[in-house]
C-alpha cells in the first residue's frame, strides 16, 4: 500500500496574475511511513497536502493510492487550527466521528479520551476562543487523530507551541502514530523536528515547488525525544540546511546575503 505522487503541477489563476505553486512534484510514500516535508515558505507545501487530501485537483500529473480499499481516509490538520468557533472543543474533536456516523455517546467518549491524551481534558466543554493558541493547535490534532485516518496530513501542527510543550506533543504524536501506523505527511519549518520525527525528509525548493532531495535521518525506532541533544542528526541537519540555504537566503534581506 503506497501513495504515489506523480509529476504533479498546480497553478493558481486570478485576475491579478498566475502563481505557479507546484512544478512537477514526484514522490512515493508507503503505508506506515512518517514522511516530513520541509521547504521555504510559499514553496507549495500546504498546496501539496490539499492535493493529497483531495481538496484541490492537480493541473496535471497523478496522485494514486495503491492497495487501499479505495479511497483511503485522509484527514488534514490545517496550518491555522481551523477549529469551528461555534462548537465546543469536544464537539470539534468529535466532528469527524459525527460525519462518519458514529453515535453521540460513543463519539463523545472517544473525543474526551483523545483530549485527555493531549492534555486538554478540562477543556472539553469550552469554546475555542477560550483556549490558548497551543491548546487550539492540540485540539486540531486531536480532531484529525481521533478519526483514525489511513493517511494523516499535518500542516505545521506544532507551530504555535513553546519548546517544552512541543517536545511533549512530539512524543505524544509519535506514540499515537506508533499505535496504528498511518501514513503521515508532516509539513514543518523546523529541520530538527523533521529529522527527529520522520522516517524520511523530503526537501522542497522554492517557487515553483519541487522535491529537491530526500534525507533519511540515522535514527531507529522507537525514538527518545526527551530534551537531550541528538548529535547523530547534526550531519543530516547540515545537509538539509545547505539544500535550503539558497532558497532561504533569497527570502531574507538582500543586505545579509552580501555581508
Amino acid at each position: 500500500m503506497h501513495l504515489s505522487v506523480f509529476h504533479i503541477t498546480k497553478a493558481f489563476i486570478s485576475p491579478r496574475g498566475t502563481i505557479s505553486a507546484l512544478a512537477d512534484v514526484t514522490f512515493t510514500a508507503f503505508q506506515g511511513e512518517f514522511v516530513a516535508l520541509v521547504g521555504p515558505s510559499g514553496c507549495g507545501k500546504s498546496t501539496l497536502l490539499r492535493l493529497v487530501a483531495g481538496l484541490l485537483a492537480p493541473d496535471s500529473g497523478q496522485i494514486d493510492f495503491t492497495g487501499w480499499p479505495q479511497p483511503p481516509k485522509r484527514r488534514l490538520v490545517f496550518q491555522d487550527h481551523a477549529l469551528f468557533p461555534w462548537m465546543t472543543v469536544a464537539d470539534n474533536v468529535a466532528f469527524g466521528l459525527e460525519m462518519d456516523g458514529i453515535d453521540r455517546t460513543d463519539r463523545r467518549q472517544r473525543a474526551i479520551a483523545q483530549l485527555e491524551s493531549m492534555g486538554l481534558a478540562g477543556f472539553a466543554d469550552h469554546y475555542p476562543h477560550e483556549l490558548s493558541g497551543g491548546m487550539k493547535q492540540r485540539a486540531a490534532i486531536a480532531r484529525a487523530f481521533v478519526t483514525q485516518p489511513d493517511i494523516l496530513l499535518m500542516d505545521e501542527p506544532l507551530r504555535a507551541l513553546d519548546a517544552q510543550t512541543r517536545l511533549v506533543i512530539q512524543e505524544e504524536l509519535l506514540s499515537l502514530w506508533e499505535r496504528r501506523r498511518p501514513l503521515v505527511l508532516y509539513v514543518t519549518h523546523d529541520i530538527e523536528e523533521a529529522l527527529l520525527l520522520a522516517d524520511r525528509v523530503l526537501v522542497m525548493s522554492g517557487r515553483p515547488g519541487q522535491v529537491r532531495a530526500e534525507v533519511t535521518p540515522p535514527l531507529g525506532r522507537p525514538r527518545d525525544l526527551t530534551g537531550r541533544a541528538h548529535p547523530e542528526i547534526e550531519e543530516s541537519k547540515w545537509q538539509i540546511w545547505k539544500l535550503l540555504e539558497e532558497d532561504v537566503r533569497r527570502q531574507i534581506q538582500p543586505q545579509r546575503v552580501t555581508s
Binding site: R50, G54, L55, R75, D100
Partner: peptide
C-alpha cells in the same frame, strides 16, 4: 478554511 475542514471530514 471551515468549508475545507467540512469537505475533508466528509460533511
Amino acid at each position: 478554511t471551515h468549508w475545507e475542514v467540512a469537505a475533508n471530514y466528509g460533511a
